[in-house]
Structures are given as structure tokens and as C-alpha cells.
């Protein structure tokens, strides 16, 4: 039994280790290891297309996760105050946001936005006083919107679970002691749900940072890091791709470790 489980852990981590190993390869071929070198990291980091994609991904992940953390927490708090029917509608929509495949979310957002732009752009051109009217199109906004949908559902679910296990008596005690609802929220509820909000934010961040398929449809001419990695894989496997992949892996492992710590602390207390 032990041997079998060990084998599964090897199965889980060996491929990742291989990617990391070959990122340090001195040779240019991804197949034989010819010596240790950091040159591919240097090449990757001095590649302007890559750094731009990385920056785009960071902006998108930060914005979509941040918005989702705020709106999702608000929604989780608000849902508790709604009637069972309205709440069921919300629960259904949040479940749909999680269950509907990313490829469909990407397509549907693309189709809907293209239609909206087709209507909006002539109006903008007509109303704009200058010669070069702004043109609404796919880009940061559409990726953030589509990532935000999944993230919003994720944060709401996590915070809702935390709220469900929160003691009501302490909230009532606070209001019995004449604390305003806002004071109660700030000094009683928020500190207790904060680990859940933070974990939700981090998970939403890693989701957005790693997502390929949704962004692939709605990115327009913008490149995110996964889109860049996908394109490089198609161009051919080189140690540079491994260097990028290693950096992506290390950063998401760090983020997820922090998220897990936050959620575990919650369970322990």
C-alpha cells in the first residue's frame, strides 16, 4: 500500500521536476541534458513579449480577483439576508458560473461582447466630438469580466461557508451592547471572515493567472502568460518554455501554500 502511494506521489511530482530540471539545461535541445545553465531564464526574462504577457496576466489576475473578493464577500453577506427563493436563484447562478465549462464561458462572452461592440461603436463614432473616436473592443476589460465571473462564484462560496460556521450569538451580543451594525461588522464579522476572503482572493488570483481557455477567446489582441506559453509550445519545445513554466509553477505554488495556510488556521481555531 505504502509503495503504491509513494508511486502516486512520484507520478504527481516527477513530470513537474522534469520541466524544472530542463529549464537549467545548457543545451538548446529540450531532450538531452548537457550541463547546468541559467541562460534560458536570462533569455526568457529579457524577451519583451514574455514580460509584457506576464505583466498583463498580473494586472488581470489582480483586478479580477480583487473585484471578486469585494463583490463576492458582499454577496455572501447579502445572501444571508435574502428570502429562500431569491437565494436559490443566486445559488443556481453561482453554481452555473462554476460548472459551465470555461470554453463555453469564453465563447458566450466573446459572442455577446462582439454584438454589444457592433452596436456601441457606431454610436460612439457618431457622438464623439473629435476625429478619432475610441473604439470599444476585446482586451483587458473582457478578460477581467470573464475571469471575474468564476472568481466571484468561488469567493462567494468560500465566504458563505465561513459565515455559516460563524456564531450568531457573538453578533447578537455586539448589537445588544449598542454597537452599530457597521461597528459589529468591522470588529466582529470581518476579522472572522477575513481568512476566507483572503484565501478566496488568492485562489481567484491563481485561477485567473493560470487560465488559458477563457482568455484565449476573449483576449482580442492582448496576450496573457498562458496564451504566450501555449503559443511557444506550438512553436517548439525549448528550455526557454521550461524556464517560463518553472517560474509560473513556483509562483502559483507559493500563492496556494499561503491560501491553504489561511484556510487551515481557520479550521484549527
Amino acid at each position: 500500500m505504502r509503495a503504491l502511494v509513494t508511486a502516486v506521489y512520484v507520478f504527481l511530482y516527477a513530470p513537474i521536476a522534469l520541466v524544472v530540471l530542463f529549464s537549467f539545461n545548457a543545451g538548446r535541445h529540450a531532450s538531452e541534458f548537457t550541463g547546468f545553465s541559467l541562460q534560458w531564464y536570462g533569455k526568457a526574462l529579457s524577451n519583451p513579449f514574455l514580460t509584457e504577457a506576464l505583466l498583463n496576466s498580473l494586472i488581470i489576475a489582480f483586478t479580477s480577483a480583487g473585484t471578486a473578493a469585494v463583490f463576492g464577500t458582499m454577496a455572501a453577506l447579502g445572501l444571508e439576508r435574502l428570502g429562500p427563493r431569491t437565494r436559490a436563484v443566486f445559488d443556481g447562478l453561482f453554481a452555473a458560473a462554476i460548472v459551465v465549462p470555461g470554453v463555453v464561458i469564453g465563447i458566450a462572452t466573446l459572442v455577446a461582447l462582439v454584438e454589444v461592440f457592433r452596436f456601441v461603436n457606431p454610436v460612439l463614432t457618431f457622438l464623439w466630438p473629435g476625429d478619432t473616436p475610441p473604439k470599444a473592443g476585446l482586451g483587458f476589460f473582457s478578460i477581467i469580466a470573464a475571469h471575474g465571473l468564476f472568481s466571484l462564484a468561488l469567493v462567494t462560496m468560500i465566504v458563505k461557508a465561513r459565515l455559516a460556521s460563524l456564531g450568531r450569538d457573538i453578533v447578537e451580543a455586539s448589537s445588544d451592547l449598542y454597537a452599530t451594525p457597521f461597528t459589529t461588522f468591522r470588529s466582529i464579522v470581518l476579522p472572522q471572515i477575513f481568512p476566507a476572503v483572503a484565501a478566496g482572493f488568492l485562489l481567484a488570483f491563481t485561477f485567473s493567472f493560470d487560465d488559458f481557455i477563457v482568455a484565449f477567446f476573449v483576449a482580442g489582441s492582448k496576450t496573457t502568460l498562458p496564451i504566450y506559453v501555449f503559443a511557444s509550445i506550438r512553436r517548439g519545445v525549448t528550455p526557454e518554455v521550461n524556464a517560463i513554466a518553472t517560474m509560473v509553477l513556483v509562483s502559483s505554488i507559493l500563492i496556494i501554500a499561503v491560501a491553504r495556510l489561511l484556510l487551515t488556521e481557520r479550521r484549527a481555531s
Binding site: 511530482y13 513537474i16 506559453v229 519545445v237 509553477l249 496556494i256 491560501a259
Partner: peptide
């Protein structure tokens, strides 16, 4: 348990890429 969960939250793209290596002709 953490070691099992962590890979799920890392890039599926990168993890799948690793298998292109392993299963590829080399």
C-alpha cells in the same frame, strides 16, 4: 494532503506540457 492538492492549483498547461516531454519520441 497538501502535497496532493497543490498541483491542482498550478497551471494545467504547464503540467500537460510536462507529459509532451515524457510521452514524446525522446
Amino acid at each position: 494532503v497538501s502535497l496532493v492538492v497543490v498541483p491542482f492549483w498550478t497551471s494545467l498547461l504547464v503540467r500537460t506540457y510536462a507529459w509532451m516531454y515524457i510521452l514524446g519520441s525522446r
